[in-house]
Amino acid sequence: MNPNDYVISTERLSRSFGAVHALKSLDLRVPAKSIFAFLGPNGAGKTTTIKLLLGLLKPTSGDGQILGLDIVRDSVDIRARIGYLPQDTRFYEHMTARQMLAYTARFFYAGPAAEIGRRVSEMIELVGLEGKADRPIKGFSGGERQRLGIAQAEVNYPDLLILDEPAASLDPMGRRDVLEVMERLRKHTTIFYCTHILDDVQRVSDQVAIVNAGELVTQAPIEDLLAGTGDSVYSVTLRGDAQGAYTQVMQQPWVSAIATSQAGEQVTWQVSVTDKAAAEDQLMSLLVTSGLKVSNFGRKEQNLEDVFIKIIEGSQK
């Protein structure tokens, strides 16, 4: 892929606040029409990155491009082609949802008024706010504000949607609705979003980048990330004297680690293996021939949360 194929690309993008290096030399590549999750613990530099991309902050060094435009020099032109949902959605409280969406639309379109009105109604319907469209925003719940935030971000048919914690203040139903909206929009637009809800990421994202302490730790398609380093983990629950079997299993060339835990007379092993086929063929028989009673045996599915924690902890060592 050449740099022009990416909707967002940054080169050594950095930002410091005094002695604090909030973002260190970030090289990010966001492919077109992807749903790209930007993950990291609190204070990792996610919101700083978004604000740099939007021109709300200026980089200390490095540069970046969105849709082929420079994030510093062409900031207003970039903002004409993107939609943004802030982390803490704050709008003019005296406006109704409809007025706020029309006001937002008029930053992009001068008219005709009927078309703008139609687009506003489409957005209200998209986020399910039909019953509240003509009420002042000051009476809206957190979830309703979040839906309105998504509607205003999408009102201009953006080429890129930047969403900072889009499902943060939503109940499970609201979260499901937001994810459905994101999936519906992926046909037309690229979505770059931050979140702490890793289940959502696993459900809708194509690509994931993880930052920690201002540094990019990894960026990969989600399948690659879940596949991890190639290690698979088998969980076995045993009864009997497991010490001899432990040494025997550890000597196998396809075993990389065993984590053990004991509950009463039961011992549980998490066996990390480098060769899944060998493990499937030999692990069970090794345990049985050692005289152990195996009450549970199965491959443990790795989820994004496991991967995330492993990566963050690894990057901190």
């Binding site: 709300l56 704050r90 937002t104």
Partner: peptide, 14 residues
Amino acid sequence: QAGTAAWVLSKPVT
């Protein structure tokens, strides 16, 4: 303080 300035400035305005 309210964040509305940041929101408006995320739109195509100078």
